[in-house]
Write a protein that binds this DNA or RNA. Structure first.
Lengths: 358, 358
DNA sequence: CACACCTCCGCAACCGGTTTCGTTGACCGC
DNA sequence: GCGGTCAACGAAACCGGTTGCGGAGGTGTG
């Protein structure tokens, strides 16, 4: 209330309570060595004055900051904001404050890791799903604090993620079981300049699934695009102009699949009758678009990563440092059995005004 | 590199450079009073050792934290994550670190404002679009730091937002011009317990537009639901069961509109032929669903709020403390002229397999 | 009754910087 | 050659806490 409240320090409180700073400090941190009576008296005074300790000063002497950094390439896409939400929901109740850093492109990334604003600023770092170069990896290690990876893996840092290859196989196998033989993949990479595991793993899963089914991969059916909706559309267009277009498409993510759907809609191609589409994520929009997908737990990856971080900070030895969360096939309306003969040119309800059937 | 790097302090650097801490400090902060030669020598040593000052220690003596807090009710929805992105993109280059607090429900809100983890922790607070009670407002003020509101307004804090009433009028007027007379509104509130301006303002704009056109408002055509996709669907269901269903629906936001579309699709009602739908936001999904909407600049509200914050911190007097950003009607495929006679029971392409026409 | 021991608490030294103030020495003008 | 200015720098006092150490007083034991 009182605007001057924030101006008083522990010495003032101590003076008012008729004790020493040390005692006030002990009371506030719950340390032993204070009589119940004194403790109560100080406590009462403290919240009458609505006094709070300065986190920075405390940090200085105690050594820990009570802060955790979250580093992600973007905050706007659903995946990242959901992971962030998971992280926050765990950290806040434990009294940790969360610093968020958005490192969008290579240029920002270079700058960020060069002058590393996290230095001496946080107790731990959670890195969410993005490619980290050798140099950046060293920089992270040099921070000297625990680093946890969410939605990926990096060196031997503890991590929580899904099995990307397995998820891809779930998706592709679903298409194969439906009788599809010409199955394309629209793959995505966050940045073309830096290696990033998920696209590679998903591609691997895709190829493996085809291989196991005795289908051979057609290079023309593998396209690679930056990760976004519009790029998904572009990828689909490329596939449609192939010599023999696919009857089914596996997209890197639901957002990419969404772009593919838009492209198909504009081309007047019926989904799923002419072409089946499947993604990965179970993005909220997937349900709206009736998109078949492989669901991954997203917010959960955030909460688990945060819990792991807390365990590391607490020196808890009994933690599982490498966590792989399960994925599930969610069958909706954008996949269907292959047509007896794959007549891919087949047009379905072009210009139709309804939204995908539920 | 060297893991011991983070262990050295300014005194060490000073000793190695053969100068005093004061000089090192001056060099690092670019303060005058150091010869060019000494400055260069210290600088060289500093980045050879890759030494960085401890932000906390600096804060302690300087007084400012170099940190800004962002408080929002959620991070997962597009609006909030986009605003956050805007804020981050401005603050980081200026050397500010951003603490993010997610205050989801009333309970969390009470806790958050009661023990206010921001105290003595940040230089300024950006509050993103959510209802703040009297008590919470006082708590914010008691922080003694600048408070900027994005996506709303609060007391006389500087803010940046859109004109919600005007945006609603843009939407409803579009429907009216298309000849609609029975126009419903699906309104949304973040939490039913606390007052929140945007829903009220949009409702006001809705009613005003109807009024100006000489149409009278039918209470049955005004429904209120929590803000989410599924709730939007529920709101639509309620409208469909009205005695005389509407021929057009104005939704509080695109997400709500999306739910409405899903509900209509499931009911087999053609959009826009039987019922037109319009939202507010221009959410990315709007383009995919071909949803007519009133676009508001979202990320821009974040960047502007951050700029305002910087200006306040910099003591810049020449700032415009109340900013209202323009909105624009984006006409797509979910709105159409009213049918000659509003035959609202008309079913359109039920079970159709196409996606909305582009 | 003396001595050991334990509890409660204050003193003061940190933590790692910033900043005020004063000192030193070079340079200037007369 | 001497007093005065000014630039460059160091000593030390902060900033606001935490914590090791030791002293005072009370209680239990021989």
């Amino acid at each position: 209330m009182d605007p001057t409240a924030r101006r008083l320090n522990m010495a003032d409180v101590a003076a008012l309570a008729g004790v020493s700073k040390a005692t006030v400090s002990r009371v506030l941190s719950g340390a032993p060595g204070v009589s119940d009576e004194t403790r109560a008296r100080v406590k009462a005074l403290v919240d009458e004055l609505s006094y709070v300790v300065s986190p920075d000063a405390a940090r200085l002497s105690r050594g820990s900051t009570g802060r955790v950094a979250v580093v992600m390439p973007q905050t706007t896409t659903w995946f990242y904001s959901a992971v962030l939400s998971g992280v926050l929901s765990v950290l806040r109740p434990e009294g940790f404050d969360t610093l968020v850093y958005q490192v969008a492109d290579d240029r920002e990334s270079r700058r960020f890791f060069a002058d590393l604003p996290l230095r001496r600023q946080v107790d731990a770092v959670i890195v969410v799903a993005f490619p980290v170069s050798e140099f950046e990896q060293r920089q992270l290690a040099a921070l000297g604090v625990p680093v946890v990876i969410a939605g990926g893996a990096l060196a031997d840092h503890p991590h929580v993620r899904i099995d990307d290859a397995a998820a891809a196989r779930q998706a592709v196998t679903h298409l194969i079981r439906a009788g599809h033989e010409r199955i394309a993949m629209i793959n995505a990479a966050l940045s073309p300049e830096r290696p990033y595991a998920p696209p590679m793993d998903r591609m691997y899963g895709y190829r493996t699934a085809l291989d196991e089914a005795g289908l051979d991969a057609d290079p023309q059916l593998e396209v690679d695009v930056p990760w976004s909706v519009t790029m998904g559309a572009e990828g689909m267009d490329r596939l449609l102009s192939a010599d023999r277009p696919p009857t089914a498409v596996f997209a890197f993510s639901d957002e990419v699949a969404t772009g593919a759907l838009r492209s198909l809609r504009r081309a007047g191609i019926a989904v799923p009758h002419a072409i089946s589409v499947i993604g990965i994520d179970d993005h909220p929009v997937a349900e709206l678009l009736d998109l078949t997908t492989v669901r991954q737990p997203v917010e959960l990856q955030g909460t688990r990563a945060a819990e792991m971080t807390l365990a590391l900070l607490g020196g808890d030895p009994g933690i599982q440092p490498q966590l792989t969360l399960p994925t599930h096939l969610v069958i909706r309306g954008t996949t269907a059995p292959a047509e007896p003969r794959g007549r891919t040119g087949d047009h379905g309800t072009p210009g139709g005004s309804g939204v995908t059937a539920g």
